[in-house]
């Protein structure tokens, strides 16, 4: 038996919004310690890893490890029927082919129960190696979203260059070019830790997709090392994270 109750549906909506554009279907791996998800996008260019500890939930019970195959578009449709301040309980019996979602209004005078068909997804898990990132940048999540949006107007590729002076985002296309540079600020909203400078090139549309997680967190952490995937991490309150890994582009 798996049962988890969140006091606010809004958090679940934000998490699903952060996933649904890059993943149409995915498996939630539920265990005693919490809920995990790991999946590649269809093109196998990026990887999403999510972790939510059990103490995020008002009530959490997972008697045995369980994998719930979900169609995230369908889940989104169900979540649209709920109000953000509803409490939500998700429940699935062992070996069940359905997920139950129950929404309870804040005034507790309305309950709505939904059943969502589970999918049998054959999802392989990848081993993510421990990486000592040469550059780690923290910045406001809204600033990162704005930069990704602005650069994608110019070019399909975005170059991210990180040095001790700051982080620079560049795009160069037919209509022209753009360079946006952020330096470390004294008020601490942008911080740059650099062991060695790194410059890598990425597909801007994936970066844009990652920024769907912006409502989850005020800050985003960007980590880079030479010739390895970029890591973009959004914390989920104090209870977990969504991490997006993006393979770099290389010169042919």
């Amino acid at each position: 038996m798996f049962e988890a109750r969140l006091s606010s549906t809004a958090l679940l909506k934000k998490i699903v919004d952060a996933l649904k554009e890059i993943l149409h279907q995915s498996t939630l791996d539920c265990s005693d310690s919490g809920i995990q998800l790991q999946a590649m996008d269809n093109s196998h260019v990026s990887l999403v890893s999510m972790s939510l500890r059990s103490d995020c939930f008002e009530k959490y019970r997972c008697d045995r490890n369980l994998s719930l195959g979900l169609d995230l578009r369908s889940l989104t449709k169900v979540l649209k029927c709920a109000s953000g301040d509803d409490a939500v309980t998700i429940k699935s019996a062992d070996k069940a082919d359905k997920l139950q979602l129950s929404f309870e209004s804040a005034s507790m005078d309305r309950t709505a129960d939904y059943e969502l068909r589970l999918l049998n997804l054959d999802q392989e898990h990848l081993a993510i190696p421990e990486t000592d990132y040469a550059c780690v940048v923290h910045m406001p999540a809204t600033e990162f979203a704005r930069i990704c949006r602005d650069l994608s107007t110019f070019s399909e590729s975005v170059v991210i260059a990180c040095t001790k002076d700051g982080i620079k985002f560049s795009a160069n296309g037919e209509m022209g070019s753009v360079n946006i540079k952020l330096s470390e600020t004294s008020k601490g909203d942008v911080s740059v830790q650099v062991e060695e400078p790194v410059t890598l090139s990425f597909a801007g549309r994936y970066l844009n997709t990652f920024t769907r997680a912006t409502p989850l967190s005020e800050k985003v952490k960007i980590s880079m090392a030479p010739e390895v995937p970029l890591l973009v991490e959004y914390p989920i309150e104090d209870y977990g994270y969504i991490r997006y890994y993006l393979a770099p582009k290389v010169d042919e």
């Binding site: 590649m40 260019v45 990887l47 990848l126 081993a127 190696p129 390895v228 993006l246 393979a247």
Partner: peptide, 12 residues
């Protein structure tokens, strides 16, 4: 050229 994430992360 776009690299695949599987060229960095291998199946468990």
């Amino acid at each position: 050229m776009q690299k695949s994430i599987t060229s960095f992360f291998k199946p468990k």
